[in-house]
Design a protein around this nucleic acid. Sequence first.
DNA 1: GATATTACAATTTACATTTAATGTAAGTTG
DNA 2: CAACTTACATTAAATGTAAATTGTAATATC
Lengths: 199, 199
Amino acid sequence: MPKTGLSSEELVEKTIEITMELVRRHGLDKFRLVDVARELGVTHAALYNHFPDKVAILDTISERWLSEMDEALVRVAETRGPARLAIIEWFMAYHRRKRNKVRGDPELFRSFNMAVEADKPFVLRHLQNMHDQLLRLVERGAETGELDVPSPEGAVEALLEATMAFHHPLMVLEHKDEDRELLLQRVVSVVLAGLSANR
Amino acid sequence: MPKTGLSSEELVEKTIEITMELVRRHGLDKFRLVDVARELGVTHAALYNHFPDKVAILDTISERWLSEMDEALVRVAETRGPARLAIIEWFMAYHRRKRNKVRGDPELFRSFNMAVEADKPFVLRHLQNMHDQLLRLVERGAETGELDVPSPEGAVEALLEATMAFHHPLMVLEHKDEDRELLLQRVVSVVLAGLSANR
DNA sequence: GATATTACAATTTACATTTAATGTAAGTTG
DNA sequence: CAACTTACATTAAATGTAAATTGTAATATC
């Protein structure tokens, strides 16, 4: 039994809750471990039993957000109907979630963006995840004959590169105040058309 | 007759030369007006007869680089042959020039990037320039029947958005160590194919 | 034995002080 | 009179120092 009366899990959860609140209220730069500890009623050193270091707390939050997104996108990808439409919807959902995050949670987005720039493993896993989800969608389109792609892998790469302006965090940030959904829709449509066309 | 024995033009030229050398040698952050003035053999105040402020010197350098690029790209755009190939070559040249700049002149690229983020008028002019050049290329393709685009304007927008990962300064910086020319070629090809397809 | 505290070292941040750089205006010079 | 200097005001950078924060280890508690 720990002294706090909290299980390790509970303490981790509370730590994350408090961190999110503090980062939102005072900004990422002014986020202090000692403040979290005070809120929890422990010394800051106690936190090191549950997190390797300070950024690990922030990374946990980013990782969870990415996981939620991954799951939400899986649900979009799994909807019935034409693969072509599913791919468009999938990119739209991907874009919209990131844009909503920048707008609604700018400081936590900043923390996420730092994890991206640091190439944190959980970020790479997320990217692999996105890649795999899209690959399945393209393969589905190929199976039904909807898409006539010679190389699903190449198609995925082309799609992800061509939509970089809509899902790369820095680009999402740059265009946060514009509604670019229709534009994204057109770009994805054109690329899909191009992938199936002639060759 | 100015006291320096230099005409205004000559002094401006020397100022720019010296600035480029200093920024390259000591980095953008350590670039000082007083150092330029000392090299020129004048007081720093003299520089204000030729430039409105410090960043104006750096902006002049960036603007010139953009002008060179604009001209070089016009030459690429004007080469005879299929418009489709010209468009690909045009994007490749655009991408290659920016990548070469980041790699060969990182500190001056940083200065350019700041001008971009500040939406300086000369940057907007450059972007308009790129847009116009590409529009002419697309129209050329439409005239020869090579491209079957319903809206040249829309085509240009789609092409520029889909290639953002290859010409946006932040993205060029992010991928400076990878050779992505083949990938760019594929993306442009696919978009071009998609623009002409069906509809 | 996991969880916490205390005590301490290493690092960061905050702030006050100084110094240097930038920008302006009035006066000087070729 | 355009181009410069000098002199000065404003702003920004560098320096030094105290305080706070982060991270670690040895020890105590449930």
